[in-house]
Design a protein around this nucleic acid. Sequence first.
DNA 1: TTAGCTGCAAAAAGTTTGCAGTTCC
DNA 2: GGAACTGCAAACTTTTTGCAGCTAA
Lengths: 165, 165
Amino acid sequence: MDTVKSKTSCTDYYSQKCEQILRDSGAKVTKPRLAVIKLLSTATDCLSPREILEEINLTSRKKSTQVIDQVSVYRILDAFLKLGLVHQVFPTGGYIACTHLNCKAGLHILIHCTECHNTEEIDIPGDIFSPLKWYIEQHKSFVPKNHLFQIDGTCMHCRKHDEIN
Amino acid sequence: MDTVKSKTSCTDYYSQKCEQILRDSGAKVTKPRLAVIKLLSTATDCLSPREILEEINLTSRKKSTQVIDQVSVYRILDAFLKLGLVHQVFPTGGYIACTHLNCKAGLHILIHCTECHNTEEIDIPGDIFSPLKWYIEQHKSFVPKNHLFQIDGTCMHCRKHDEIN
DNA sequence: TTAGCTGCAAAAAGTTTGCAGTTCC
DNA sequence: GGAACTGCAAACTTTTTGCAGCTAA
């Protein structure tokens, strides 16, 4: 990733990168798609299709602009998924897939507490992944595009809580 | 993992390990639960709740034993999830969570082709993960229990196919 | 201009809830 | 015996499909 200074410009960077990927692939850059990209690039958490719809339409209603349809959200996410723009996770331990902007995922890893379902995204030094990537390319002639590394366990807070009970 | 000789005894090993976790946690070991454990421990792929139901009841009908209910499958998977017995993945790139026996995940990694949705589980030498585990424990005081490492990309077969088009 | 995208309506599939009856410990 | 689990029925939510109209390139 290029060097980015502030949080605001970082968000802009993600949006523009996604827009570029859309254009390069021949897909159209429409208002609903831009709204989804904008939301995902500013979001700190991953979002369910329902949350995406509600967030976008909340903003739209405030600005009196056109709301979007739930069906479009599904279709947009499908398209983004095929382009590798987004990723899906299960932060709640349930059955609903939440979406994550993929270029934000870079060399991140999600740590997910199975007690409180708090999910945190942490940076990992790149050299930890290099051998893994190498291994997969060598042994499987498989070209890695995105990754989803999620570690489930217990966070400090919940361990303390367990000790009391 | 202990040393295991044949494929059959390996499956048995998984089943017994899961059963033990159930007992230790105070949960009851019932027939529907055992059926789910058995299925997951022999399955090569991860399975959706629907697939689990159908597989189990197919076997039950052949043997003229009691079939189980879809609702029970959901409740069993919920319970197993809370105990960390299973994991969930999105092998199809869709919205349906598929379940994976967790003790089988050990030091495996899923490689998932975004073109053909073929998912393969491969072994990775343990020493590639060690630094990662260490890093997380050190920096986050987070105790890893399970992990889900999924790498999306393009398999050799689909790359060849793309070149033709 | 037109291929691709969206919105609307409706159907299909998946998931949850409540409760009575059963099973395991 | 009692707590935990299951099955059944029904409600609820999520996801998909078809089609007509719109829009970015």
